[in-house]
Design a protein around this nucleic acid. Structure first.
Lengths: 355, 355
DNA sequence: GGCGTCTGGTGCAACGATGCACCGATGCTA
DNA sequence: TAGCATCGGTGCATCGTTGCACCAGACGCC
């Protein structure tokens, strides 16, 4: 059992207690236990146990240059989607004795870059990066120095570093599933609500939307995009719902408003729903809405939200284990991308258009 | 400007470049710059800048035993309320050069304890703890060794360590505000929906509920409590909504169902709303619902949720700065508690009862 | 001119863990 | 019995930073 006192026992004390040298304890601690008699090994283990010894991570890191911490850079954990990622990633990390340093970029590229430099300077060699930027150029110098990067929610791009691991749901397929669901219900005027199509996954989702329309014989050129200024600036996550709300208002004011809306994500979809209600209409009955992500709240909302689910626990688990693998057997593994299959979850926010 | 290479420049190299000894650089770095000529100081600063020097945190921590990292232990960042705390706390920390290690206890006391021990062993001396446990006994040994603890969302208790800082909204007042709002609207049969009243803040909120009833001349003894098994087990955060949903079903099946419901928090309230709709009724028109927390979604929901707001940015900022103060001027400051004033936010989910 | 006092700066021994290079004893082979 | 592995284990320099103890030189004072 662990002793009452703990926290400042050193390897030297353990060595003394077990009647060996610190080197031998270190050997045991670092998987070289075959270099000693079983009896010695047991004595050391007993000493570790009774003293409640825990290796000092700072000392270990100073010596080896490695540590058991990974960085997580997300736009904002205030957003339930990223909150869910943080939760599952941290769980996976904990199971292997790793810790997670949390960084909220607030979608600021400068801040994102500074975070990563800071993490590197802190000795963090592995980072799960949820970047909204299409290019990873700004972190290339660190990658070249050995930083292991897993890009999450972002499909691989031509210019990416070769060692990069990308993890994402197949956004195009997801969006197409959502769109086809609407066309199957009989919708013909369908709008796509998004902020600027600046990030990879927004572009992909838009591509799936277009594909879905085409599959139903609709002309994508006539499809609606909102908000109208969306060629322009990006938007933060917290404001996604605001954006959806405004976009809905804009769309409903049209002469021929859409009968269905595909939103870039669930937060945005919730905003759209709110906007529809603002306009005195009812979701599903008057306008169908599909989201993307399947955050917890999708199933709580009124009406419950039809959406495209990302298998978050699996994705987070994969992110961690791929990162860890690269961290531990240093470097050799090549880059790869993992595209998870999205799943359409049909709930109450979609229905056939009113005749 | 910072050099292209960075990450492995040492204090020794800076010293050489500036023509001084490492000690002098260290003196500058640690606020002893008055012990040198202004000219020397400038030479060192220039060297730091051109070399892109960053102190090695591991070495620094090994030497001083301190570091610039705080721990955040929350039930689950998957819950938007904790997500918001994590976000704001991390922001405040970043501004002062601190990092945040994220820990999800999943409301498991064992895990909570292990996390804190782990953090301590890692050299983390300050932790913001969001514990659901009424007693902090399990972390007392570490506190005695110097761990600085800020309890968040938990009011101070008699048995708490004297050095403890507690930060919370005034739960009793908040709940009373919510309840009085309902009685002011004319409600007489009001239910309280919560999991087991195991944690401090649940008890407090219940107390406020009772006080609100009494203020309106109602007999608290006749008030409804749901779910009926709520003397029993605790519940996780993710399941709060499930609990609300089930509780609503149970309440509506009564011979004389309540006309209004006070939920223990927003997630639970959303579940209650869902349960009301399950039963074919309409929130506000048939049953009023008040939540607690004012998470982002409260204002997006349909109907928008009347709730009690916790001033999260202020609370998170206070949590960080109190923790930091204690971390930096070691130990002398006594414990204190900070009770933030909650604010009732009236939205659509509450209305006068139907005659 | 001897003594004390600043000023501006340096020397050095830690902090705790690591792992390479080494070592004495024993066993095996020729 | 010389020659050489193998086994079980140890010595020691090292990682980068810190801050106490110290020091040489300039200055002031009686």
């Amino acid at each position: 059992m662990r002793g009452v006192t703990m926290g400042e026992v050193t390897i030297q004390q353990v060595a003394t207690a077990a009647g060996v040298s610190p080197s031998t304890v270190s050997n045991l601690l670092n998987g070289r236990s075959h270099r000693m008699l079983p009896a010695t090994r047991q004595r050391i283990e007993a000493a570790i146990d009774t003293l409640g010894y825990r290796p000092n991570r700072a000392a270990r890191q100073l010596r080896t240059g490695r540590n058991q911490t990974i960085g997580l850079v997300v736009p904002s954990v205030g957003n339930p989607f990223w909150g869910a990622l943080a939760r599952h990633l941290e769980s996976a990390a904990l199971a292997e004795g790793y810790h997670v340093l949390l960084c909220n970029s607030e979608r600021d590229p400068r801040r994102e870059r500074e975070y990563i430099e800071e993490l590197w300077a802190d000795g963090v060699h592995g980072v799960v990066l949820c970047s909204s930027l299409p290019s990873l150029e700004h972190v290339m110098p660190l990658v070249e120095r050995g930083l292991q990067l897993v890009a999450f929610d972002r499909t691989a791009q031509a210019g990416d570093p070769t060692s990069l691991v990308s993890i994402s749901v197949d956004n195009a397929i997801g969006s197409e599933l959502a769109t086809r669901h609407l066309t199957d219900l009989g919708h013909r005027r369908i709008a796509f609500v998004s902020g600027a199509l600046a990030s990879i996954n927004r572009k992909e989702r838009h591509r799936g939307f277009v594909a879905g329309l085409e599959a139903a014989g609709l002309d994508p050129a006539t499809a609606l995009l909102a908000p109208s200024g969306s060629g322009g600036e990006a938007f933060g996550d917290v404001e996604a719902s605001e954006l959806g709300r405004a976009a809905a208002a804009e769309l409903l004011a049209l002469d021929e408003p859409p009968t269905a809306i595909v939103a870039i994500n669930d937060m945005c979809a919730l905003g759209v729903c709110r906007g529809i209600r603002d306009g005195g209409l009812e979701v599903a009955r008057d306008v169908s809405v599909v989201g993307f992500d399947d955050i917890v709240l999708a199933d709580l909302y009124a009406p419950t939200l039809t959406t495209v689910r990302q298998p978050m626990p699996d994705m987070a688990g994969a992110a961690f284990s791929l990162l860890r693998a690269r961290l531990e057997d240093s470097g050799s593994a090549p880059g790869q991308s993992l595209l998870f299959r999205p799943e359409l979850v049909v709930r109450e926010s979609t229905a056939a258009p009113r005749s």
